[in-house]
Design a protein around this nucleic acid. Structure first.
Lengths: 112, 112
DNA sequence: TCTATAGTTCGATTATAATCGAATATTAGA
DNA sequence: TCTAATATTCGATTATAATCGAACTATAGA
């Protein structure tokens, strides 16, 4: 099994982070991880098939937004909160607050 | 002459803002506007031709990041700082600080 | 009215990415 | 050792966007 690559904190690029966060599906995933802490892929409900989810997960991981660890047959995702705060102070917080108050999630998840 | 469309403050979408900011050229433009205030297109040096600049300018305007006003033959660009602060508190500030401290601009502007 | 200046629009090209379904890999447990 | 569960990878398709050069628009000023 290939070891999953995570960029070092210092190698996290601002434009990559902003790009990763600019997709509604990925924003939703990030928001969910922020609320719930660590989550398995399967327990995050998004309106895309598994392979597409996997693609988004990878985009988030390679941009440095999330950490992925293997547990049995599952992959557990979590936000790299500390790394991001060190690298770009205040950024993640303001994005998450903006997301919660902006109704962006309504773009693809009608209920809630 | 067509009146330039600017989205109302309440219509500014988070994902669109993040997307607009995820391009190195646009980040550079936004950073320049933040430092200098209002600037004409021609006075912002970017490594792209005029038509490409115009495309980026439009992307920023339609996302709600900048205001464009006409003065003679020039278009003057400025950041919608207040609107953004009201809509997404702290977001623009943290992005600009992250940009200044991250060396992202080195991606296409070697000197400085 | 003519010309120079400042930008935009258009069309074409190229690159990137979002999405899906099918096939594959890995692990847990019977 | 089979099978089920969980997720990734691959290939194809479609959509979006970054870029350029050429043509165009609008305004200022001679």
């Amino acid at each position: 099994m290939k070891p999953l690559h995570h960029p070092d904190r210092a190698d996290i690029q601002l434009s990559s982070v902003l790009y990763a966060l600019s997709d509604p599906v990925r924003l939703y995933i990030v928001s969910g991880l922020h609320r719930a802490g660590e989550l398995a892929c399967g327990s995050i409900e998004v309106p895309v098939v598994k392979s597409t989810f996997s693609h988004h997960s990878r985009t988030l991981r390679e941009a440095g937004l999330i950490r992925v660890r293997v547990k049995g047959t599952q992959r557990l995702l979590s936000l790299r909160t500390e790394d991001l705060e060190e690298r770009f102070p205040g950024l993640l917080k303001s994005v998450l607050e903006a997301y919660d108050s902006s109704g962006d999630k309504a773009a693809f998840v009608p209920e809630e």
